[in-house]
Amino acid sequence: MATAALAKDQDWAELVRRIHEKQDRQAFTALFRHFAPRVKAFLMKSGAGETLAEEVAQEAMATLWHKAHMFDPSRASVSTWVFTIARNRKIDALRRQRRPEPEELPWGPEAEPDQADAMTLRQESEKLAEAVAKLPDKQRALIEKAYFGDLSHSEIAAETGLPLGTIKSRIRLALERLRHAMG
């Protein structure tokens, strides 16, 4: 299963490259079928109604097309890159705020992403996905709320009725597990 999923993200990266180099609509269609429903689900969990979530998911996928040249497989998996695009569209469309992003790192000597780095990153992303899937339910639920619920830790405390200390320690435990899995 791990190998199949690994091959998958490699394929996604190849499809993004084909959009960049050949404006390949078939490649885009495959990416769209996989990622657009996931982006829409993320937006609905963040509080968007179905119509708005659909609209913003389409905008996010159009952004993926336009920014295909920015994707660097040695720095992020396609899933992670799509997540950051969806997150920024969410802030823009749902909150009507600008999103300040860190300064881009200056270009290194080679403009081409390093193949070995890209391979390492893919393997680590796969390991992380497995570790996230294996988190105990209670920890996982809180991590999801922290990411998708648009809530601060204190707001999660108010919503779940759990003490703030419990929330902070469960999230800390979850992060320790993920770090251990990645170590």
Partner: peptide
Amino acid sequence: EAIGGALIDEDASVTLS
């Protein structure tokens, strides 16, 4: 951000028009 990527990739429960 990679954790966000792993989380977003898991939920395929929603369909588009």
